[in-house]
């Protein structure tokens, strides 16, 4: 019964592939937990203070947590409005023949290695920010946030453009048929219908912003400090990833120092997981008006 055999083989092959993908995520989480266990048991709540001084055995990650949240908020706040408007332009206003061209260009942007963005950031953005705001140094949290916004823009544009473009034409026709203006069709009909997929695009961008290392590391100044007042982002700071990028190679494997670094990685994963779960719950990613 060859049909039955190929069917079984095919089913197991698919199952096996899924298990590998799920296993990788599970293994990463497990590894992070195992290696950060020493830091958790040795330092406990001390891990959430602001002092990071490995020779003295102080491993407070608050500054890094702050930096990560700050650059991500800046990046998303800048990239989402621009990205969404660009997506609307490409999908609804631009003539169809330009759509593919513009989209391929944007997808090209998404493939540029982050070190390139980092070098551009060091050579230009940090200088501009320094000059505009008359700072001692342009290596600030804001610079990191702007650079990240540029990096996640292509992702947000191309994915939310897909979301809007995939809304079936009957909705457009029905809305125009009711005599709505074009902006009403876009904002009152298409965007609400595409909402879940747009949220997915923003989440993917947010995840990339949080996990980005190289570009941020080069422009943020890398000092473990929470600015005062806390919303002053025109001073140097540190993110979890930039800290890891700079320090992980200099910590001896198995030390509390190393373990505390891994703990920061664990925190990053937990934050991204948390945001994804909350978003799924509130935006109901699975509910669509069309299939």
């Amino acid at each position: 019964m060859p049909a039955l055999i190929t069917d079984k083989v095919g089913k197991n092959y698919v199952l096996f592939s899924t298990l590998i993908s799920a296993g990788v995520i599970f293994m990463i989480l497990l590894m992070l937990l195992i290696y950060s266990w020493e830091a958790i048991t040795q330092n406990g709540w001390q891990l959430f203070t602001t002092v990071w001084n490995p020779p003295a055995g102080q491993f407070g990650i608050a500054s890094m947590l702050y930096g990560t949240v700050a650059v991500t908020v800046i990046a998303v706040a800048l990239a989402v409005p621009i990205g969404l408007m660009s997506a609307i332009m490409i999908s609804e206003i631009l003539p169809g023949r330009y759509r593919v061209m513009v989209k391929s260009l944007l997808e090209l942007l998404a493939g540029i290695p982050s070190i390139i963005y980092g070098l551009i950031g060091v050579a230009f953005f940090s200088l501009w920010i320094g000059n505009i705001f008359e700072l001692d140094t342009g290596r600030t949290i804001l610079t990191g946030g702007i650079l990240l916004a540029i990096m996640i823009l292509p992702i947000i544009i191309t994915l939310s453009e897909d979301a809007i473009h995939n809304v079936p034409d009957i909705y457009r026709e029905a809305a125009f048929g009711l005599g709505l203006y074009r902006h009403e069709v876009i904002f009152s009909t298409l965007l609400p219908i595409a909402r879940a997929d747009i949220a997915g695009a923003v989440l993917l961008g947010l995840g990339r912003a949080m996990g980005e290392t190289m570009a941020v590391m080069l422009v943020i100044g890398s000092i473990d400090r929470i600015p005062s007042p806390v919303f002053n982002t025109l001073v140097p700071g540190q993110t979890i990833t930039s800290k890891l990028g700079r320090e992980i190679t200099e910590s001896a494997f198995g030390s509390v120092h190393f373990s505390s670094m891994i703990f920061m990685g664990l925190m990053l994963l937990i934050i991204v997981l948390g945001i994804t779960l909350i978003a799924q719950r509130f935006i109901k990613l699975r509910s669509r008006l069309y299939e």
């Binding site: 001084n53 001692d136 140094t137 290596r139 100044g221 890398s222 000092i223 473990d224 140097p236 700079r246």
Partner: peptide, 10 residues
């Protein structure tokens, strides 16, 4: 430690 530092580079 260098509490006067503004930037930490490599």
């Amino acid at each position: 430690e260098a509490p006067g530092a503004d930037l930490v580079l490599g």
